[in-house]
Amino acid sequence: MTFRIGFLLYPQLTQLDLTGPAQVLAAMSDSALHFVWKTLEPVPSDAGIGLLPGDTFASCPALDMLLVPGGPGQQRLMGDGAVLDWLARQGGQARWVTSVCSGSLLLGAAGLLKGYRAASHWAYRDYLPAFGAEIDAGRVVVDRNRITGGGITAGIDLALQVVARVRGEEEARAIELQLEYAPQPPFACGRPELAGPALTERVRRRLAADLKRVNEG
């Protein structure tokens, strides 16, 4: 049976939050990917890459899996009734409800993380308890049918875990090999506990400036 996966698009999302897991899930057998926004107009990502929706909230079918990416544009959607209603409706019936990075805060705002352990980007996970979620610092956190990822690149790991659960570990292993997913980060500083306080604070300030720019733009 076709496994229907819906990705929320929105202006100023982080494109790798979406395209990383989408690349994995597009390789999964008998999957159908739906890229969804309010309109079918191109959606600008934070990297300047335009993303083209294929469905609107109205046309998107019932989903087996919902995935919400993060990005500096996430903050503007936290009170957007149309977005939160669609997330609540799709997330309420989907087999799997997932997010990458600060996308978990949108799941939380839609009421989908109450009583669940959840991850987010390290700079934003302290906001999760405001939505009734329990912070988990894991790279990928699975709590029943909620799967939430840490920052950005964690989306690839998350998607491989989904494949393993939906189609079996052998297929997930084959996709990992197909994508030559064997990361070897050159500087080993991709988490605050590895980077140290000075670099972490510098990046935190940079992220805050990016949020300010997007929300004032």
Rank of each mutant, 00 (worst) to 15 (best):
F7T: 03
G79W: 03
L194A: 10
Q178C: 07
F7E: 05
P21G: 10
M1I: 00
G108V: 02
R205P: 00
P53R: 05
L207R: 08
G168M: 09
A195F: 09
P42W: 12
S104R: 01
P21H: 06
L105P: 02
D85P: 05
P129H: 04
L160C: 12
A58D: 15
I175R: 11
P11K: 06
L199K: 11
T56M: 11
A32I: 03
G190C: 07
S29F: 00
D143M: 07
D17H: 03
R4L: 10
R95A: 15
G20D: 05
I156F: 03
R117S: 14
A109R: 12
A174E: 13
V203H: 04
R165S: 13
F3H: 09
V166A: 05
D17F: 00
T98C: 15
V140S: 10
A110L: 00
A62E: 15
L8Y: 08
D157P: 10
G91W: 01
L63D: 11
Q161H: 11
F131C: 03
F57G: 04
K114S: 12
A198K: 15
W37D: 14
L25Y: 06
P192K: 04
D126P: 01
L158D: 11
Y124F: 14
L194H: 11
A26R: 11
W86L: 09
V203Q: 10
L179G: 08
L40A: 07
L112Y: 09
L25W: 09
N145L: 10
T39I: 04
N145F: 06
A164P: 06
A123R: 08
D136M: 07
P183M: 11
I5N: 05
G103W: 00
P72V: 14
W96C: 07
D46C: 12
P61V: 01
G6A: 04
A82M: 04
E216P: 08
A47C: 10
Q74K: 12
G108F: 02
E176P: 02
T153M: 08
P69N: 07
A123G: 02
D85I: 01
R139E: 15
V142R: 15
A22S: 14
P21Y: 08
D30M: 09
P129E: 06
K114A: 15
D126R: 15
L112E: 13
S29Y: 00
Y124K: 02
D136E: 10
V36I: 15
G196L: 06
L199I: 09
L25M: 09
L207Y: 13
T148E: 00
L51E: 04
A109I: 10
V141E: 07
L179K: 07
V68S: 03
W96G: 02
E169Y: 00
